[in-house]
Design a protein around this nucleic acid. Structure first.
Lengths: 232, 232
DNA sequence: AGCGTAATAGCCAAAATTGACTAACGCCCA
DNA sequence: TGGGCGTTAGTCAATTTTGGCTATTACGCT
């Protein structure tokens, strides 16, 4: 989608243009697009008839670059995709949520410390976003709505900060959360009940692998070397 | 990570157990784990020495099931992974954010309608989460911290709801955001508007907001069949 | 001019993910 | 008593994703 939309936007383009644009948006972070996938996606879209090759230039002995533009079919598909995303709730993938589900695996004091630390990180992330928005960033020719996107991030983070502090307090206060299954039975079967309850389900969250660390802000856990590695 | 953690948690287990557990958590939504990937992950972890095969039972002529348990090395790795996720900010991947970056591709009135619709969806999602938490869910033996996870979702969504309304107001108010690239080449809009209101039906506006707030919360864009398909 | 670095453009083999598929077994009810 | 259905358990080929690699040209500096 991203790629189709970008081609639509910048056409005619070749792969490297798209790559640079995505990179400049740090889209490898908030969208799901690594540079390596671009060329594959372009080829696939072209083969599906949503894009069309428009030229193939070559400068010297460099790799030839193929320029694409969107076809009416691609435009149509793009509109569908776009509306699907705007009108429905998509599933958000958040690795922290997945990790939080293992709360009982951490000692209480570390859990609460980590939560407060997270609040701190979120706050300072928000601060730097705000600073970036006010300082000359927007005069640099960035579209206004990008600032709105930042604001969405900020708004969500603000909700999360409050949550962090609240939960940290609960943890500190010794509110019990460790299920008996942990302390008593090694096996937990009573999970069948979870399924039955799907009627009111709605866990709109989702966790995805790959953690990359924001440039500066990062704290290390007390003891282990917080290697961020694979994600099985 | 998820899988390693689950094995650690439920050991000794075989693949199907893990699969059922993840399914019961709807983990295919909020984590990144489809049933198909489980066995691969288990094998990979075993081969990396983080898990160990512990038994291979076979009942009749059914597929043999291999039971795994975690090794000290796996435990170590799990602690690392877990702490990495707890102490650092991970990147959240949200398809809506990606879609929002194409705001200029939508007609103003559709954008604002979609935003308000989104606020509605989020609100009702929150409501049903809250309802689920209060109604017998927690008495069912569910670990307390799962409720905290729901609360995080709610907190974030609340921030987002406010944002939606705020931005919708801005859009309605005609705050400019369309970059010059767009207005320069009006043939782009051609498609947006054509498709947006070309449905030939009376109102190009407002998908009929279905009143019932049941599980099937979802609204359709004005005309196109909001296929949520691939995502290039 | 000569050298090192950065940017350009894309490729590719390996790894991961997916969803459809198999195939036996248990059980219920007519 | 046997046929249909759901559960159990996992496989597999095809698709996707990854991120490191190559090889050329442009640029800056002394």
């Amino acid at each position: 989608m991203m790629i189709l939309g970008l081609v639509r936007w910048m056409q005619p383009v070749h792969g490297y243009d798209v790559r640079r644009e995505l990179l400049s948006w740090s889209a490898d972070k908030w969208a799901n697009v690594q540079p390596g996938s671009i060329y594959h996606a372009l080829r696939k879209l072209a083969e599906e008839g949503q894009l069309r090759e428009v030229a193939t230039e070559q400068v010297g002995a460099r790799p030839a670059r193929i320029t694409y533009e969107i076809t009416p079919k691609g435009e149509d598909e793009f509109q569908n995709l776009l509306r699907g995303l705007w009108w429905n709730l998509g599933e958000v993938v958040d690795p922290f949520l997945a990790a939080f589900s293992f709360l009982p695996a951490l000692p209480r004091d570390e859990a609460s410390a980590a939560l407060r630390n997270r609040a701190r990180l979120l706050r300072s992330g928000n601060d730097s976003l705000r600073a970036a928005m006010e300082s000359g960033w927007m005069k640099q020719g960035k579209p206004t709505h990008v600032a709105w996107m930042w604001q969405l991030s900020i708004a969500r983070a603000e909700g999360e900060i409050a949550w962090c502090e609240r939960i940290a307090d609960l943890v500190d206060a010794g509110v019990p959360y460790i299920p008996e299954e942990f302390t008593q039975f090694p096996e937990w079967n009573q999970f069948g009940t979870l399924i039955g309850e799907g009627g009111a389900d709605a866990g709109p969250e989702r966790a995805e692998p790959s953690e990359r660390v924001g440039q500066a802000e990062r704290a290390e856990p007390p003891e282990t070397s917080g290697e961020s590695g694979t994600n099985e």
